[in-house]
């Protein structure tokens, strides 16, 4: 352990299964790239819901940085770790997962909880089992459910003050209203929802950038979305089996934000390709189950959190075989 500490920058190493190839990519670079790729979705959220969304995002990020600095100082760690971008990303993602009209103390308490409890108390970046931003959201959801479930329509709509998310409408059995929202509106984000989840167009632009830079692979997002598509098509239609509106279920919740930006978190997702596919399918199945059978209209965040808990066991059983490996016959 002492020799480990002497190697400078050991904390920024990416853990992966061999063979290892040296590259310029560092954890910090990836964190900042993901943060950068999320900017379009944030701008879209601010345009759609108004300047208040910007305040929420800023409050969240500032709290994340302050909380991280506080804990790093208390743990007598190098404050340079602040620059690795992970705290900023946690703050940003949490803000994206909030309804646009929550009071400002909510992103602050939520981010504080996410950074201090979910990340630093588990040992800091690389040691947290659960995605910190999602833990923050779960904390807020349990603590102040009334704020977390009151929505706002885009500001150009007549009844901008209160609204309902498309999946919320479905949960309350207003099928006609849910079906009345056009796919294009869902795609560009002309609907009620969380700040960062609504504009699919902007999210996909960010995701494309990450694919192009090869910072994320296709396995988790595609397995996740495909599972949702299949299960929703088969079981979630109003006219019986195989009548589900696939595009509605992909576009209408937090699925795109979750699948591309949160389920793919390096620390809390499996390492191997096979493991990633299992992880994605699990997230999809759980999301579908929550959407269909629970009291909650949307289940992306809880599904990812639950699958986070399975990552160690998935990693254990999907460990790739090394060269020359032969199964021992008993």
């Amino acid at each position: 352990m002492d020799t480990m500490k002497k190697i400078k920058g050991v904390e920024s190493l990416v853990v992966s299964i061999g063979p290892h190839i040296r590259d310029e990519v560092t954890t910090s670079k990836i964190m900042w790239a993901v943060t950068f790729s999320l900017i379009p979705a944030g701008i879209a959220g601010i345009i759609i819901f108004g300047i208040r969304s910007l305040f929420i995002i800023c409050a969240s990020i500032l709290t994340a940085i302050l909380a991280e600095a506080l804990i790093l100082a208390a743990r007598k760690k190098d404050l340079n770790a602040l620059l690795d971008g992970s705290a900023v990303l946690t703050g940003l993602l949490l803000a994206y997962n909030l309804p646009p009209n929550v009071p400002l103390w909510m992103p602050i308490t939520g981010t504080f909880f996410a950074v201090v409890i979910a990340k630093q108390l588990f040992g800091g970046l690389g040691h947290n089992i659960f995605n910190p931003a999602l833990v923050g959201r779960a904390f807020l959801m349990l603590s102040w459910p009334a704020y977390m479930t009151s929505w706002q329509n885009p500001r150009w709509k007549a009844d901008a003050v209160t609204g309902a998310t498309p999946l919320g409408l479905l949960k309350e059995r207003h099928m006609d209203l849910a079906a009345g929202i056009s796919k294009w509106d869902l795609f560009i984000g002309n609907r009620a929802g969380c700040i960062g989840e609504i504009c699919i167009l902007a999210l996909l632009a960010g995701a494309l950038y990450l694919f192009w830079k090869r910072y994320i692979t296709w396995h988790i997002p595609f397995a996740y979305i495909l599972t949702i598509a299949l299960t929703s098509w088969i079981f979630n239609g109003s006219g019986g089996l195989f009548t589900g509106d696939i595009m509605f279920f992909i576009l209408s919740g937090g699925l795109v934000l979750g699948a591309f930006f949160m389920a793919t978190d390096y620390v809390t997702s499996p390492l191997s390709a096979k493991g990633k596919i299992i992880f994605g399918v699990g997230c999809g199945a759980l999301t579908f189950l929550i959407r269909k059978f629970s009291g909650y209209p949307e289940g992306v965040s809880y599904a990812i959190l639950m699958m986070n808990a399975f990552v160690p066991i998935i990693d254990r059983y999907t460990h790739p075989k090394w060269f020359g490996w032969v199964k021992v016959v008993k």
């Binding site: 308490t109 409890i117 904390f139 349990l142 603590s143 102040w144 459910p145």
Partner: peptide, 15 residues
């Protein structure tokens, strides 16, 4: 302050 219900639910006990 607005009390976080989290604390009187099960996860709050564990925490």
């Amino acid at each position: 302050f607005e009390p976080p219900l989290f604390m009187i639910l099960a996860p709050g006990a564990l925490l």
